[in-house]
Simulated assay, not measured.
Amino acid sequence: MALAAAGDTWGIDGTTFLLGYGVLAVGVFIASVRARRALADPGQKHVVPDLTGRHNDVAYLNGGADLAVCSALARMRVQGLVAAHKGTITATGRPGPDSDELERAIAFATASPTPRARLTWLRPVRTALDGIDRRLVAEGLLLSPEQRHRIRLVGLWMTAVAGFGLLRLLAGIADARPVGFLVVALLIVAVVAAVQLLQAPRRTRTGDRVLATMREQLDRYAPHNRPDWALYGAQAAALGVGLFGAQALWASDPAMADALALQRLSGSGSSGSGDSSWSGGDSGCGSSSGCGG
């Protein structure tokens, strides 16, 4: 072990401090990831619901409000209830008794031509979407705003580590000691802290498992299989979009996707965070962050 030289900041040489600081940062990071995951899995006793018949709920769970609207429009288009041209939607029929609140709201909102991009902001549609959100939170599949706030607060742990490093950095500068490596370490810790403070998963871990199971069971609706919606029907079209994003429409009915003015992105992978407009997988139609660090 190297002995501290006279004049070492805080009586600890730079190499020893960097090693200890790195161990501290890694330890706190691992603890924070575990804490965030635990908070994303509240452990409440919920009966896991069967979402097979709730296509718009599946879409909301996967990609939020935009994907839920996309799912509803896909089903309504196959049923001949809406017409679309260059992203403008017009109702052409009345929803049947098997339609849910979101589809009825969309039919009402598009009695006159309405841009698809505006649908999620119209009061009837927004009310229906809020109802889906509350239902999924109550069933333990989505996290409430309060739960997500608690998850973000875990980022204060790494913020404290960054603050400690900043104190050492300022002290080192005052002592005219080299601080280049500490600056790099401090930047990494600060970025991790910022990400944890700003981001939180939207789904619970149970919600992630429900989606993964449904994708496995309904793989025949995946874009790579190019399912025939005329054969499978309107419900399958909505589930395909809900589970695999708008890429399901581009793969199976590009004319419909083009009429709805959906952005075409390559791939249909799944992402746990961020917002990606009208893509495939978890990032479809505005993403719902999955659980995890």
Rank of each mutant, 00 (worst) to 15 (best):
A6N: 09
W10D: 11
W10V: 10
G11I: 06
D13T: 05
D13Q: 12
G14R: 12
T15R: 14
A25G: 12
I30F: 12
I30C: 11
A31M: 12
S32Y: 01
V33R: 13
V33F: 11
P42W: 01
Q44G: 15
H46P: 01
L51M: 09
L51Y: 02
R54G: 00
N56G: 00
D57V: 00
D57Y: 03
A59C: 10
Y60K: 03
G63I: 03
G64H: 06
A68D: 08
V69E: 05
S71W: 00
A74N: 08
R75N: 05
R75E: 15
M76R: 05
V82M: 09
V82A: 08
A83K: 12
A84H: 07
K86M: 13
T88V: 15
T88I: 15
T88F: 11
I89N: 08
G96F: 02
G96Q: 11
P97D: 14
S99N: 10
L102W: 11
E103K: 05
E103I: 07
E103H: 06
I106T: 05
I106M: 09
A107L: 10
S112L: 15
P113A: 08
P115V: 07
R116G: 10
L119R: 02
P124A: 06
G131L: 11
L136T: 01
V137T: 12
V137E: 10
A138M: 00
E139A: 13
S144L: 09
E146C: 01
R148A: 05
W157Q: 09
M158L: 15
M158W: 00
A160H: 01
A160L: 15
A162N: 01
A162K: 01
G163W: 01
L167Y: 08
L167D: 00
L170R: 08
A174T: 11
A176E: 13
P178R: 04
G180K: 05
L182P: 01
A185T: 08
V191C: 13
V192W: 02
A193S: 15
A194E: 10
A194F: 14
V195Q: 14
L197V: 09
L197P: 06
L197Q: 12
Q199A: 12
P201C: 03
P201K: 02
R205F: 06
G207E: 00
D208F: 04
T213R: 15
M214L: 15
R215V: 04
L218T: 04
D219N: 14
D219L: 13
R220C: 08
A222T: 05
A222Q: 04
P223K: 05
H224Q: 15
H224G: 10
P227Y: 04
D228E: 09
D228S: 10
Y232K: 05
Q235W: 02
L239E: 04
V241A: 06
G242H: 07
G242W: 02
L243T: 09
G245E: 01
Q247D: 14
A248T: 03
W250T: 00
A251I: 11
A251G: 08
M256A: 15
A259R: 14
L260Q: 03
L260R: 01
Q263H: 07
Q263Y: 02
R264Q: 14
R264N: 13
S266Y: 11
G267T: 02
S270C: 02
S271I: 11
S271N: 14
D275H: 14
D275S: 14
D275E: 13
S276E: 09
S279F: 00
G280S: 07
G280A: 05
G281F: 03
D282W: 07
G286Y: 02
G286H: 03
G286A: 09
S289H: 06
G290D: 10
C291E: 00
